[in-house]
Simulated assay, not measured.
Amino acid sequence: MASNASQGALAPLARIAQLEERNVHLNKEIADLQTVLLREMSRQGVAIPLTPIECDEPSGTLQDLKLRHELTHGGDIVDDIEAIRYAEARGLEAVSEFKDNFAKAYNISFDAAVEAVRSSPIELLTTFNALASVRVYPRWQEDDARTYRAAIEHMATHIIEAAMLVEEKYRAGLFGRDGILGKQYDCMQQLYLQRILGIRE
């Protein structure tokens, strides 16, 4: 989880190491599978093209997807908890810094978050993720996102603080049609999605 917002979404060194380790395993599995497939194709007499088949990128849509990806893929509280646990298991020195950055992004301490994600409703997890996204991800720091960012951050912070005051077993009841946080959650989600879906309109 880099403390420098310009580096984008929360990305601790632990996450990088973890993903690199997974990639090594995946690459080996893919290479093994490719070898098996090529042998089987050869055995069946299937001709393999010598040059790769090229496909044109669809025009006008790729940029939209990239921009929306930058807006939506900032916070992921469950994934970041897993990354910090991985860092702890590996004995990385920066674990305390990761936890500090985590608390700033999600508005909850790491230890409290570990407990919260075990039983919190999806609405609360989504709120944590939205808050971290608007706080950390560079695309949300741009001037044209200022109004959305401020409103989403204000509502998300209120939802999190209110939900964390309630016992775990009652948190799900805070959301939905009759929940006291339901309308505010829906409003926050609408603004969040409106910003994402409206960026290229």
Score class of each variant (00 low, 15 high):
Thr147Ile: 14
Arg22Trp: 08
Gly60Leu: 09
Arg90Ser: 02
Ser96Gly: 10
Lys183Thr: 14
Leu38His: 08
Glu93Pro: 11
Ala11Asn: 15
Met188Trp: 05
Asn107Gly: 07
Ser133Gly: 06
Tyr170Leu: 13
Met155Gly: 10
Gln44Leu: 09
Phe102Ala: 01
Arg146Thr: 11
Glu40Leu: 12
Gln34Pro: 01
Arg149Trp: 00
Trp140Lys: 03
Glu153Trp: 03
Lys104Tyr: 01
Phe98Met: 08
Pro52Lys: 13
Trp140Asp: 04
Glu142Gly: 00
Cys187Val: 12
Ala89Pro: 07
Gln18Leu: 12
Glu82Thr: 13
Tyr137Leu: 13
Arg39Cys: 02
Asp111Ser: 12
Phe102Asn: 02
Thr127Gln: 03
Val78Met: 05
Val166Lys: 00
His25Trp: 09
Trp140Val: 04
Gln141Tyr: 01
Thr35Ser: 15
Gln44Pro: 00
Glu142Tyr: 06
Val166Leu: 01
Arg85Cys: 13
Val134Cys: 02
Leu19Gly: 09
Asp80Met: 11
Leu65Asn: 05
Val24Ser: 03
Thr51Met: 14
Glu123His: 08
Gln34His: 09
Leu174Glu: 00
Leu50Phe: 06
Ile84Asp: 01
Val24Ala: 05
Pro138Leu: 02
Ala150Leu: 15
Leu37Thr: 06
Asp79His: 13
Asn129Asp: 09
Ile16Val: 13
Asp64Lys: 15
Gly179Lys: 11
Arg118Asn: 02
Gly91Leu: 07
Leu19Ala: 11
Leu124Ala: 01
Leu67Met: 12
Ile53Ala: 13
Arg85Ala: 11
Ser6Ile: 10
Ala47Asn: 08
Leu92Lys: 10
Ile16Trp: 09
Arg195Glu: 05
Lys99Glu: 08
Glu201Tyr: 14
Gly8Met: 02
Leu67Phe: 08
Thr147Gly: 11
Arg177Tyr: 08
Glu201Gln: 13
Asp56Pro: 15
Leu174Phe: 05
Ala9Ser: 07
Thr61His: 08
Glu21Leu: 14
Glu97Met: 10
Pro58Cys: 09
Asn27Lys: 14
Ala2Met: 08
Arg118Leu: 00
Gln7Met: 12
Arg149Pro: 00
Met188Asp: 01
Ala94Arg: 14
Arg135Asn: 05
Glu70Met: 15
Tyr86Pro: 04
Phe110Cys: 03
Leu124Trp: 04
Leu174Ile: 08
Arg15Thr: 10
Gln189Cys: 12
Ala163Arg: 06
Ala94Gln: 11
Ala116Cys: 05
Arg135Thr: 04
Val46His: 00
Thr127Pro: 04
Arg43Met: 08
Gln44Val: 06
Tyr137Ala: 11
Glu115Met: 01
Ala2Glu: 07
Gln7Thr: 10
Leu37Gln: 06
Lys28Val: 14
Val24Leu: 09
Glu20Tyr: 12
Glu29Leu: 11
Ala83His: 07
Pro52Met: 10
Leu197Pro: 03
Ile160Asp: 00
Ser96Leu: 14
Gln194Tyr: 03
Asp76Trp: 05
Ala17Gln: 13
Asn101Arg: 04
Val46Tyr: 02
Ile160Leu: 00
Gly179Val: 07
